[in-house]
Structure formats: C-alpha cells, structure tokens
Design a binder for these strands. Structure first.
Lengths: 200, 200
DNA sequence: TTACGTATATACTAATCTGTATATAAAAAT
DNA sequence: ATTTTTATATACAGATTAGTATATACGTAA
C-alpha cells in the first residue's frame, strides 16, 4: 500500500499540493516569465513552503520541465477530443483544426503557448528546457502530418510544416498583442494552402 | 566642440566602447537570453567595467531597449537595401522579400529575431521591453502592407498580416531548431498566398 | 603645467536567487 | 498509544543580481 502510493505519486499524478504548485508555476511562468519567477513567489502564491516544493521537484529546472510537459499534454488532449467529437471526415479535420486553435487562443484564460516562450528564454539548443520545447514543437508537427496524410494531401510533410508555421506564427502574434486576430488570418491562409494541397 | 560632441554621443552614435557594449550585449542576449545575462558578464566580455556601461546607459533596461532598437534598425536597413538594389517591379518585391529573409536566416551569424525573443521574456504587455517589441512587430507589418499595396494586392492588409505570420512563424521555427528549413516552406506558402491575392 | 574628460580598478550595498538544515506541528496508520 | 508520514516555519548558506562610491590612471587640450 505504501509502495503503491509512492509509485503512484512518482508518476506525477495525485497529491493536491503538487498539482497546485504545477498550476501556480504554469500561470506565473506564462504571465511573468520563467526566469523572472522565483520559487519563493511560487510557494507564496500556492500557499505552501519551499520544503514542500523541493519534496515534489528536485530543482526549479525539474519543475519547469514538468510544467511544460503538463501544458503540452493538456493541450494535446483537449485538441484531440475536440477533433474527434466534432469532425468525422478526414478531409475536413485540417480546416476544423484552425477553428479549435482560434477557440483556444481567444479564450479569456489563454496565456500563450508554453514551449514557444520557454524556447525563447532558453535559447541554447543544448539546454534541457529548450530540448523539451523543440520536442513538443516536433510532436505537434507530426500530429499535423498525420492529419494531412489522412486528408489525402499531395505533399503531407510540406503542408504540415506550412500549417505549423502558420499556427505558431499566429500564436506568437497573439502573445505579442492580445486580440490581434492573427488566428483569423492564419485560418484564411490555411484554407488556401489546404485547398491547394488537396487538388489532384 | 564640447557640446557638439555631447549631443552627438547622446544620439547614440560615436564612442567605440558604447558600440562594443551594444554589440556584446546583443550577442549575449540572443545566445543566452536577456534575463540570464548579467551586466557583469557583458562588461567582462566587452573588456570594460560597469562604471563605463552605466555612463552610457542609465540601467540594464535602457541597454535592452537600445539593443532592440539597433537590431531592428540594422535589419530594416539591410532589408531595404536588398530590396531596392535587386528588384524594380513592385509585383516581384513581395516574392523577393522571402529570398532575402531566407538569406538572413541561413547566414552563419544569425542569432534569431530579437523582438520575438524579448517579448517572450517580458510577457507583460505594460513592460517597456514588451511594448518596444510589439512596436517593432507592428512596424514590420506596416512595411509589408506597403509592399502589398504597391504590388496591387486585393486586400493588402490581409495579405500583409498573413505574410508576417508566415515570416515570424518561420523565424520562430528556426530559433527553435537551426537548419529546420522552415523559411523554404514559408516561401512556398507565400507564393501561393501572393498569387491568390494578386488575381483580379 | 594645469585642467579636464575618459576609463579603470576595486570595493561596496542591498536585494534576490536556488537550495538546504533543523525543529516542530498535525494527522494518519499500525 | 505510538510510530510514520506530511507539511510548516524559520533560518541559513552561498552565489548572483543591479547599481553606486571612491580613488586613480591616462591622454588631450588649454
């Protein structure tokens, strides 16, 4: 029973305090920046102490990595559910994707795309935070490639990369200036590119 | 003679040490991040002392703002010269633009787009560094709009915003992983969008 | 020489940073 | 009832941060 619980928590699940720290850190990292947010601030806002934080996370870098991981997992889950529930035809899913991205970006609690900001704060490609960010970006590209293949695109890799550029560019624009409406224009551009790639 | 020289240096020109500090800071900010780079490191690499740095810049924030300003001015000047020397027809300039962006990005001393990284490190829209970054992004968009108007695009604003999303997205991708070739794909996408917008 | 402007060297303040040590309170499990 | 676990409170170490104070050296211009 004891060992089971330990294993359980080691997996990253369970423990309300641990979840609270992750949520608070995620919010502070996004709104104030990662390097500008100290662990003292995190524990103060989370209503706990440093001892507890360092019981759940070996270091601040570990905490950053877990925040990134959770953010990416949550986003992926949300997006997949949206796609699976609302669209059946593979040819429509690429288009619909941009509707959901827009919904995500225009939500009042949108704080930006975590791995985009993180990679900018840790520019060195050897840095673990940068590497994880690049990995997330790569996974998102692969996800788009699958959608493009299923839709029957001529050059799925090419289309997927173009769409990822559009999406990350639009989100970057929205991080720079909230309410920019960039996703709306990215959607228009995507429509043209998708139609172009689906012509036989 | 004295007052003239003071005014001259106040304008930001002259003084080799000042230039050296700006160059070193620019490089360190891009390669290590802004918040991760202390003024002690900057003066050590530049081969001077803090007293000198604070004689030319009131604060680190002032230095950051000047680095951003110089980076944007240098890029704008370079791009304008390239466009003016190599392309005469307004209808071809939008296409050519992507060739120059690719040339800029694939150069061995490319370190990223300063205002993209800066806005990520200072996410708060009230922050002076973020505001200047947003201003540079806005100016770049306006520059694209002028090119789109001259080219005779149907909806110049829309096309300009789409192209800015493509460019900033591709540069973001290249910052994430050097040699990604993102600009090449952005160029293909741009060609389609431009042709689409130039149809009568 | 004298005076002045530029830059260096060095030491300092005061705050902040990550991470740890220690002692204790509270609660849950045996 | 007693052990074990979980979390708190607090203080600390050691490094680093931005920015300043002071004294000095160097070159140039009067």
């Amino acid at each position: 029973m004891r060992t089971e619980e330990l294993r359980y928590m080691g997996n990253g699940t369970m423990s309300l305090l641990r979840e609270k720290i992750l949520d608070v850190a995620s919010d502070l990292f996004q709104t104030r920046g990662i390097n500008s947010t100290g662990v003292d601030t995190i524990v103060a806002v989370a209503g706990t102490t440093k001892m507890t934080l360092y019981k759940y996370f070996r270091s601040k870098e570990d905490l950053i990595l877990e925040v990134l991981h959770k953010g990416h997992a949550d986003f992926s889950t949300w997006l997949n559910q949206k796609l699976n529930k609302n669209t059946k035809k593979p040819s429509e899913r690429l288009q619909k994707l941009f509707d959901f991205i827009e919904e995500w970006v225009t939500a009042p609690d949108f704080r930006g795309m975590a791995f985009l900001k993180a990679s900018a704060e840790f520019p060195n490609e050897e840095n673990p935070v940068h590497r994880l960010s690049a990995e997330h970006s790569k996974q998102f590209k692969q996800f788009l490639t699958e959608l493009a293949v299923d839709a029957g695109a001529k050059d799925a890799d090419s289309l997927a990369l173009q769409l990822s550029i559009l999406i990350e560019g639009a989100i970057q624009a929205e991080q720079m200036k909230r309410g920019s409406g960039a996703v709306k224009y990215a959607k228009k551009a995507a429509k043209i590119l998708i139609e172009n790639a689906l012509e036989k």
